[in-house]
Nucleic acid binder design. Structure first.
Lengths: 148, 148
DNA sequence: CTGGATCCCAATAGATACTG
DNA sequence: CAGTATCTATTGGGATCCAG
């Protein structure tokens, strides 16, 4: 009887969060799906960090199991799979942006990624209005995809 | 100290953040030092997640190298070492609290840790006043320690 | 004592080749 | 395109040792 190596990861919000965000690849995938609008396996694979295929598959299924990603196959073309951020994932956006603002402040060499920088200058990112609009926009995207 | 493989991990704020927070143990150590007031090696070792000694030493040095922890030895007793959160680390508090609020919302089984729950109810956590007071309090703590 | 360093070896993460 | 399979590299647990 193998003794469980890990402890109960629930019962503490930071510990719960550590299980999701305390992983380099999950963190970056959430960036891709929430801020860069990436949706497909090959789009994620194309990120400059160079995730490998098995790791990508593993993290996508972890994030799906955690209720952060909604996996949908195109009704007309089964080989086309899209991963959409769930409401739960989109609710982390304010904190994620907080982290990015922090990073930008403390690492002089960092630059905001295109979509972040662009939207940050032209849109009221962080306001309730922007946030709710983003929620609605992705909801519409998912419905459109599911209808085919 | 593992050599970064292929890509440049700077140049993007999320990527930079992933290098610091995208690690389970760093994430939890920051919780301990920022929200539970833990300062010493043995206090960190006593956390319920059960970090092992080699990993703890490695992560403490990583966080020190990243400018998140300030390592101080007691002027009167060299064997007593304290790790204080730097200003840089304390500046992540608002985002960290945002993550905790998110976790608490989405995992029904999670409970806020004592110090978080207590301060959240009795103090105006999240306000500029609370935040600046916390900055000053830890600054005083560090000065007091360094004076002996 | 406290704050580590080191070693062993189990378990996990990850790069690459390959497949339906 | 969206993943498996395989094999190697790194991380991590636990015991032990060491220095101040």
């Amino acid at each position: 009887m193998t003794k469980p190596r890990s402890i109960d990861w629930n019962g503490c919000p930071t510990r719960y969060a550590a299980g999701i965000f305390g992983d380099k690849w999950c963190f970056l995938l959430l960036r891709d799906v929430l801020l860069h609008g990436k949706r497909t396996y090959s789009e994620f694979l194309g990120s400059p960090e160079g995730i490998s295929t098995n790791i990508l598959a593993d993290r996508l299924s972890r994030l799906e199991a955690a209720g952060m990603l909604d996996r949908q196959t195109d009704p007309r073309k089964a080989s086309r799979v899209c991963y959409f951020p769930t409401r739960k994932a989109r609710d982390i956006l304010p904190a994620l942006i907080g982290v990015m603002v922090w990073s930008t402040k403390y690492d002089a060499r960092t630059e905001a990624p295109e979509s972040f920088a662009a939207s940050f200058q032209s849109d009221p990112v962080g306001t309730i209005e922007w946030y709710e609009a983003e929620i609605d926009r992705v909801d519409g995207e998912i419905r459109g995809f599911a209808r085919g």
